[in-house]
Structures are given as structure tokens and as C-alpha cells.
């Protein structure tokens, strides 16, 4: 065990509220009518309330919970996509979010062009992508399709390409959201191998999955969210057993 364990992620009392407008207020007229009637910001939905936890360097941290528990919301807060309504998140290091593979692909462009576009979306420099380009294509097994527009790709091909780009740098923190269900089992294995390789190199991993077996296999710490609140936080076995006893 590390004596000098260091928190790479600190989530402090994070609350995330969304304004729920029953009908979409898409027009100016409706907006002003509601504003005058003072009905504008009445209904709120609390996706997360007062969630706190720390993740130490090298942890493989699992997040479990039923639909609507706030799993994806907390991932978005950690990766900086959403700003919490209250509380704060402290991050130490670079994040590679594998929240949805291939977000930001332009369907009209070729695989090669998309590697560069998507790489820069993740904040990489073109020179760096140059040096890693072959590695990306090899990993995605798309050597024969480099100059084909990705609109002609199958969903498996897209996911392979997305995964290959997102994991080309070894990030300090890797966020994995239900993505290991793409492609055939050979490619899934390849992805798992790459992720476990990163873990060995000290990357901190956050995994969201509905497959409790996967969580039990990979994680050393688990948080159980229920309706936006922390139901349980602790060692994998403890939390998973409690979670499973409800599921049954």
C-alpha cells in the first residue's frame, strides 16, 4: 500500500440541479409570458445531492446504481462537461473521457481526417498525432479504410476508431462509461487489455457499468448511488454484495 496516497480527484458536496421546464421554452414569447407569471424556474430536478468522495492515484473506482441514479451526471461533472450547481470538484491530472466513443467525428470526413479532428478535440497537437497515427489505425484494424468517409463505417468500426484515438495517450485519469460492450469479443478483450495496461502504469480509472461482474473483477473501490445520493461507499466486495442483495 502507498503510505503517501494522493487524491487525484476530490468531489466535495457536489449538488447538480436541472431546471425542468415541462414544455420546452423555445420561444421568446413563451419566455416572457412565463417570466411575467413567475413560473419560469419553479420545477427543479436534483440529479445529484451532496455527493462527496475522493479517488486516490491508482484506484480503479466503480460507480454502480440503477437507472437515473446520477452515474452519468457525476462522470460529466468530473470531466468538466457540466458545472456543479453547488460544491466543487478538484482534479489533478489529465482526463481521457471515454463517455461516448467517437463523439465529434464528422461523418463526411475520412478516417484519417477524423483521427486528426478528434485528436485535437481531446487537446492533442497535430505533431503528436503524426507520430501516433499508424499506431491508432493498427489498433483500430482499419488499415484498408483510412481514406473512406466514416459515414460508411459500421458502428463497430466507429467505436474501434474512437477507442484507439481516445487511449493513444496514457492519461492520468481514464473515465469509462459502459463502452466495453462494443465490437466483437476479440476487440473487447483488446480494449480490456489496454485498460489494464494503463492501470499497471498508474492510471486512475473510473468505471460505470451495469455489469456487476465487470465491476467486481476490475475495481478496488465502489460507490453506490441511489437517486443522486451516496448510498454506500467502500471496498468492492462490501458494496457489491449489498448492491446484489437488493437486485435479487
Amino acid at each position: 500500500m502507498n503510505i503517501m496516497s494522493k487524491n487525484v480527484i476530490e468531489v466535495n458536496n457536489v449538488t447538480m440541479r436541472f431546471n425542468m421546464s415541462k414544455e420546452n421554452l423555445d420561444s421568446l414569447k413563451e419566455y416572457f409570458i412565463k417570466l411575467v407569471k413567475r413560473q419560469l424556474f419553479f420545477e427543479q430536478f436534483t440529479a445529484l445531492s451532496n455527493v462527496s468522495f475522493n479517488i486516490e492515484k491508482g484506484d480503479v473506482f466503480g460507480i454502480v446504481g440503477f437507472n437515473g441514479a446520477g452515474k452519468s451526471t457525476i462522470l460529466k461533472v468530473i470531466s468538466g462537461i457540466l458545472q456543479p450547481s453547488e460544491g466543487s470538484v478538484k482534479i489533478d491530472g489529465t482526463i481521457a473521457p471515454l463517455i461516448e466513443l467517437g463523439a465529434g467525428f464528422d461523418m463526411e470526413l475520412t478516417a484519417r481526417e477524423n483521427v486528426y479532428l478528434n485528436g485535437t478535440v481531446l487537446g492533442l497537437s497535430p505533431d503528436f498525432i503524426d507520430t501516433k497515427y499508424d499506431e491508432i489505425i493498427d489498433f483500430a484494424e482499419l488499415q484498408d479504410f483510412q481514406d473512406v468517409a466514416v459515414k460508411n463505417f459500421s458502428s463497430g468500426m466507429l467505436a474501434r476508431l474512437g477507442f484507439a484515438i481516445a487511449t493513444v495517450v496514457t492519461p492520468d485519469i481514464l473515465i469509462v462509461d459502459e463502452i466495453l460492450s462494443v465490437g466483437d469479443f476479440l476487440f473487447q478483450q483488446k480494449c480490456e487489455n489496454r485498460i489494464s495496461e494503463m492501470m499497471k502504469n498508474g492510471t486512475t480509472v473510473i468505471i460505470v457499468s451495469h455489469s456487476i461482474e465487470q465491476i467486481e473483477k476490475l475495481c478496488n473501490k465502489v460507490i453506490w448511488l441511489e437517486k443522486g445520493k451516496v448510498k454506500m461507499l467502500g471496498e468492492t466486495k462490501e458494496v457489491c454484495d449489498a448492491y446484489k442483495s437488493v437486485t435479487k
Binding site: 481526417e113 479532428l117 487537446g123
Partner: peptide, 20 residues
Amino acid sequence: LKYRYLLFNLISRDIKVKYR
């Protein structure tokens, strides 16, 4: 500065898509 490459890439994407 970190995202300037993205800016260039998006512009070149627009040009490519416009005249493809």
C-alpha cells in the same frame, strides 16, 4: 493555446466539407 489546433482543424474541416 491548447485548443488552437482544434480551431485550425475545424476550419479545415469546414473547407473540406464545403467543397467536397
